[in-house]
Amino acid sequence: MMRIIGCGNPDRADDAAGILVARRLRELGLDSMEHSGDGFALLDLWQGADDVVLVDAMLSGAPPGTITVWDPASQPAGAPGYCCSTHAFGPAEAIELGRALGRLPSRIRVYGIEASGFDTGGAPRAEVLDAVDRVVNELSRYRGLAPLGTAATMSGSEVG
């Protein structure tokens, strides 16, 4: 079963990217989840799924709206920033913890949408919204994506 999880905060400008992808997919009748990105909960969210796609805003220094796709199974998710604070235990740390505990789905891909601004209450910039459209177009063509309502759909606040 395939599961798409859009991570982020809809009220923090470009950080809404993953959430917007999940919402657009559901508008197209395709199942997807929204999530705050809390790493501990992500481990549970992808349990039972054998093909997981995480969509999240990212910062790599690339131009805003750049889409980076990688396979954490063959490529580390990045240096965990979690060691600094539980406030920063996010998707990258969840992937590494999942790897340590043998709890990674058999297939997992991360779509990173390059962000640049995270101001409170701000709107995502146009380049990020364009990237959201492109990711939605790509993901909506995947075979195996469940129609809306056939898989669990939940909001970040419900899973925390």
């Binding site: 549970d44 965990p80 979690y82 913890l97 340590a100 505990l101």
Partner: peptide, 26 residues
């Protein structure tokens, strides 16, 4: 260990059970 991920590699049962305990509180 540097962090919980390192701990989890060497002590997977403790890490798994801790995650389950925390989830119960939640």
């Amino acid at each position: 260990y540097r962090d919980f991920v390192e701990l989890a590699k060497d002590h997977p049962s403790e890490a798994t059970e801790a995650l389950r305990l925390k989830k119960l509180g939640n």
